[in-house]
């Protein structure tokens, strides 16, 4: 019972802010007579959200799948590459600065070229999203795998543990906080990549195009409703990754302590 009460007190302020914010927004638009192209009322946005759902929700889902598959591909390659480089330490540490530099490149500028390669359908957006996810995940996973305290490795070796066992029992738990931190970042990046990729060329079934078109047609409530869809999907994605983190960390309680 106290856990439930604890959870409510934890979320109450945020809920209060939400209600106050929405009410304030609604009243402010009315009171100051703010025009629609500047800021529509929340009520109008929500109406458009519901009215246009046949167009917006499938479009949102379509864009989400682009982001999702890009995420999956980018993360898999990133973790895979990190595991390999952790094994060949010299190569890993020699190349690390270059991976860090690569994650400093605005990869989004590559989107039009990706569109030229893959056409304006899903694949180009998946490619961009994957490329965006790859480097941060690689850098952080590699950092996590190599940040084990020497004493822990020494302890395992004193048990005549094989390299693989050391990896499984020590390096993986130690790297988990790093990996999940980068996964959360990657989930956001993937959505950004998908939507920006669509901006450079996409079809009607994509959310980014919906936003672009409705804004161009001065249907601002629809544009904001589309933004709302994007936010819901983005938050949902982030929460899903956080949930995965909680479930995985439960199996590895030492990972939390290892972070400190």
């Amino acid at each position: 019972m106290t856990r439930l009460r604890h959870a409510t007190t934890e979320w109450l302020p945020a809920l209060a802010i939400l209600v106050l914010g929405l009410v304030g927004w609604e009243l402010a638009v009315k009171a100051f007579g703010i025009q629609k192209f500047l800021l529509p009322k929340p009520s109008e946005i929500l109406t458009a959200f519901w009215d246009q759902r046949d167009i917006l929700w499938p479009a949102g889902w379509y864009t989400f799948t682009e982001a999702f598959w890009g995420f999956v591909i980018g993360v898999s390659f990133g973790i895979g590459a990190a595991v390999v480089l952790a094994r060949f330490r010299a190569l890993g540490s020699a190349l690390m600065p270059y991976f860090i530099a690569a994650s400093a490149i605005p990869i989004i500028a590559f989107a039009p070229i990706a569109n030229a390669w893959f056409g304006i359908e899903k694949s180009s957006k998946i490619f961009i999203a994957a490329l965006l996810c790859f480097f941060p995940v690689l850098v952080n996973t590699l950092r996590g795998l190599t940040s084990v305290k020497p004493q822990q490795v020494e302890l395992m070796r004193s048990y005549a543990a094989r390299d693989f066992t050391v990896f499984k029992r020590v390096r993986i738990p130690t790297s988990l906080p790093y990996v999940f931190a980068s996964l959360k970042v990657a989930s956001v990046l993937a959505m950004i990549g998908a939507i920006v990729g669509e901006y450079f060329g996409g079809s009607q079934q994509q959310l980014g195009i919906q936003i672009k078109n409705s804004a161009a047609l001065f249907q601002f409530e629809t544009a904001w409703a589309a933004i709302l869809v994007a936010c819901i999907l983005g938050v949902g994605f982030y929460l899903a990754v956080s949930l995965a983190e909680i479930l995985t960390m439960r199996r590895y309680p030492s990972a939390e302590r290892a972070r400190r």
């Binding site: 109450l12 302020p13 983005g234 982030y238």
Partner: peptide
């Protein structure tokens, strides 16, 4: 923190491309 952190995190899911013209 309890009041605003969810919105700070959520703010990053707003597609900036969409709000840029606004």
């Amino acid at each position: 923190r309890r009041g605003f952190q969810p919105y700070v995190v959520g703010s990053q899911t707003v597609p900036i491309l969409a709000i840029a013209p606004m």
